[in-house]
Design a protein around this nucleic acid. Structure first.
Length: 426
RNA sequence: GGAGUCGUCGCAUAGUUGGUCUAGUGCGCCACAUUGGAAAUGUGGUAUACCGGCAACGGUAUCAAGGGUUCGAAUCCCUUCGACUCCGCCA
């Protein structure tokens, strides 16, 4: 959500944002509705002020009847305008939730991911002297998963890791959490069950009708709860309605949670393997900060993920996502992609997003500025810490040996009891 | 799941026979005074959002949230949410 004053004063900037982000332009309708709301507010408030004045006079009046009569008349007049005001406010509220966040000037302009640009490429893809196996072959060879059994038992797009790879998954998770704790992030073990409002607060969806989430979110039947697709949404709503002291900012969190996604829009894509599943696990970085610190925090979050790529000894690249690819609520977005040998390409492992005050306006999370004592909205940012099991795909493919075994990145070896490799015939 | 208590301005509290409560008090916080400096003390101030206004300022709303009764609701009624205490059940 944007500031209504900003929209009034900069309609062209907002119209342009709608255009480059590929969302319908509702600015004119919004401004007309806003004008009507303000007009009705002025009218009803003036009448209410008079009614209140009369009510205050009644207790001490000698002849109460005429005052009560007049007060009733005003009430009737107000009721009509209030009804229209309520309708207009509801419409305005919905329109406000259809206006996308303004993208950063630095973001590439384009309709979709074909307009994305590569910011940097780090590491050189390994030259194999044998044909590298795809993830599923390595999983099969080492009995690291049980795809048929799980598909029959739990359905498709669900996985179960077993044996040493399950151990490695836990090691990666632990490694990343400990690394972020070491960088001053507060570790939160987040729940996955939440209220739809929490998802709405995160601002990924357009409009005020929450049914639009149905393609993406698992609802829990016969309850008012749903399953969170990421702990980002939980952390984002953690301080809803609060005014934080500026001295507490920036607040840095490392949230861990199981994540649930319907993937209804991805039918047929990545059905094999560990890349796209209904239930996965994710360590998520989340920051609340002063708006002026957003860019610095964005770099910090992005750098953390880049370090993790290096620690895991993965060739990777950083993408600047285009305006059409970054989504409704974002100012700036950088995907981090790891090299996948079997596909000969890079694939997304994480996504670093700067949201500005867009989410904070929905959650009403603010801070009190030190010198001026002014209350302002905080800025929020998020980035993946590690997504599992997806991150295991480049790990096992890049570090595989001809016999199907996988070398363990050095940083994970202490967490694996000192082992240097898993799988194969050893 | 059953029974009960309860949600007031940062914190703690007063206020529940509806009307000087546009919410009192204490603590905290800010400013000023006093002081060599501090403590203590004194005085004043201390919410958020929105509407109108160049501004000073005026107005409206908010006593968990929403709705209702009433000329008028922190106070009465209903619904929802949340907290606590017992009981039951259970990893």
């Amino acid at each position: 959500m944007l500031d209504i004053k900003f929209i009034r004063e900069n309609p062209d900037i907002v119209r342009n944002a709608c255009r480059v982000k590929n969302f319908p332009d509702v600015v004119d309708e919004l401004l007309m509705t806003d004008a009507r709301v303000r007009e009705l507010k002025t009218i009803t408030q003036t009448m209410t002020a008079e009614k209140n004045k009369i009510s205050r006079e009644i207790p001490s009046a000698t002849d109460k009847a005429p005052l009560i009569q007049r007060s009733k008349e005003i009430s009737d007049e107000i009721a009509n305008d209030m009804a229209e005001l309520a309708t207009a406010e509801e419409k305005l509220n919905d329109l406000m939730h259809r206006v996308p966040q303004i993208p950063a000037a630095s973001a590439p302009i384009g309709a979709d991911d074909t307009a994305n640009t590569v910011v940097k490429t780090v590491g050189t893809p390994r030259k194999f002297d044998f044909t590298p196996r795809p993830q599923w072959d390595l999983l099969d060879m080492n009995n690291w998963w049980m795809p048929e059994k799980i598909a029959n038992t739990c359905g498709t797009r669900v996985y179960a890791l077993c044996g040493e790879l399950a151990e490695l998954e836990l090691a990666v998770q632990t490694y990343v959490i400990q690394k972020l704790i070491g960088k001053g992030f507060k570790y939160i073990d987040c729940p996955s069950i939440t209220k739809p409002q929490t998802i709405f607060n995160a601002g990924h969806f357009i409009g005020s009708d929450m049914s639009v989430m149905n393609n993406d979110v698992f609802m829990l039947t016969d309850t008012d709860r749903c399953l969170a697709g990421t702990s980002e949404i939980i952390m984002n709503s953690l301080f809803a309605g609060e005014i934080l002291p500026e001295s507490e900012l920036p607040l840095k969190f490392a949230g861990f949670s199981p994540c649930f996604r319907r993937e209804a829009g991805a039918a047929g894509r990545d059905t094999r393997g560990l890349v796209r599943v209904h239930q996965f696990k994710k360590v998520e970085q989340f920051i609340f900060c002063r708006p002026e610190d957003s860019d610095e925090m964005h770099e910090l979050l992005l750098n953390n993920l880049c370090e993790i790529m290096v620690d895991l000894e993965l060739p990777y690249r950083v993408i600047a996502n285009s305006t059409g690819d970054m989504g409704f609520n974002k100012v700036k977005m950088n995907d981090v992609e790891a090299w996948i040998p079997s596909e000969g390409t890079y694939r997304e492992l994480g996504s670093c997003s700067s949201i500005g005050t867009f989410q904070a306006r929905r959650t009403n999370t603010r801070f009190r500025e030190n010198g001026t004592n002014e209350v302002k909205f905080v800025a929020t940012l998020n980035n993946t810490g590690i997504a599992l099991p997806r991150a295991l795909v480049p790990i096992i493919e890049n570090h595989q040996n001809p016999d199907g075994s996988v070398n363990i990145p050095k940083c994970l070896q202490p967490l694996m009891g000192g082992r240097t490799k898993i799988g194969g015939s050893h």
